[in-house]
């Protein structure tokens, strides 16, 4: 009946230069360009954002610690041809917005083999990973640095979107309790 489905794109948001891009959720869009625009509307209404990446959800290979334990040879028979993959990892069970975040890149013959390499390669701290994502670099589209001013900078001036903008709003207390 409706026509709103479109492919799903996973969205990765970078809050400050030098910080890793973090998976924040997804949007639907007919192409990567619209996905970046929708991602801005959905995930960048507040500061601070300096860059966003989108990748079609169909291009993401995901592996949880539970799946790895159930099938340690998950990479068997997956080799196709070598290409660079971006790796993302979730490393904490603490309550926070953080899911998988960018952990680095490897060249591998499949997404599964990219994660296998990360598990064997000390620089990815495999012992702390709870979820892995591998995404071919060719499937990732990033925001244009030239668009930062028009896409993400305006949010920094909209201070009335922040709860800290509203100080004294309790008739019985000096100040309202901070968020729980």
């Amino acid at each position: 009946m409706t026509d709103t489905q479109w492919p799903r794109y996973e969205v990765f948001k970078q809050d400050l230069p030098g910080q890793p891009h973090k998976a924040v959720g997804s949007v639907h869009a007919p192409d990567a360009e619209m996905a970046l625009l929708n991602a801005r509307d959905v995930f960048a209404r507040r500061p601070q954002v300096v860059s966003m990446w989108v990748a079609p959800a169909s291009a993401v290979f995901s592996l949880t610690a539970e799946e790895l334990a159930a099938n340690p040879e998950f990479w068997q028979g997956t080799a196709v041809s070598p290409q660079p993959y971006a790796l993302f990892a979730k490393r904490s069970q603490r309550r926070s917005m953080t899911f998988v975040e960018y952990a680095g890149e490897v060249v591998a013959e499949s997404a599964q083999l990219a994660i296998k390499q990360a598990l064997e390669d000390g620089r990815f701290q495999p012992e702390t990973a709870i979820v892995w994502w591998a995404v071919p670099l060719s499937a990732i589209s990033g925001s244009d640095p030239q668009d930062v001013d028009s896409y993400y900078a305006p949010a920094t001036a909209k201070t009335y979107r922040q709860q800290s903008y509203y100080g004294f709003v309790s008739p019985t207390r000096k100040s309202v309790k901070r968020e729980p």
Binding site: G25, S96, F99, Q163, V176
Partner: peptide, 29 residues
């Protein structure tokens, strides 16, 4: 996980909604 993370994000934004409303009532009263 995905529901919990959406909620953390939403709660941070809802606090603004709550405060702007309460601020208005306090002002009118």
């Amino acid at each position: 996980g995905p529901y919990s993370r959406a909620m953390v994000r939403i709660c941070a934004e809802e606090t603004f909604h709550y405060k702007q409303g309460k601020e208005m009532i306090v002002q009118y009263m």
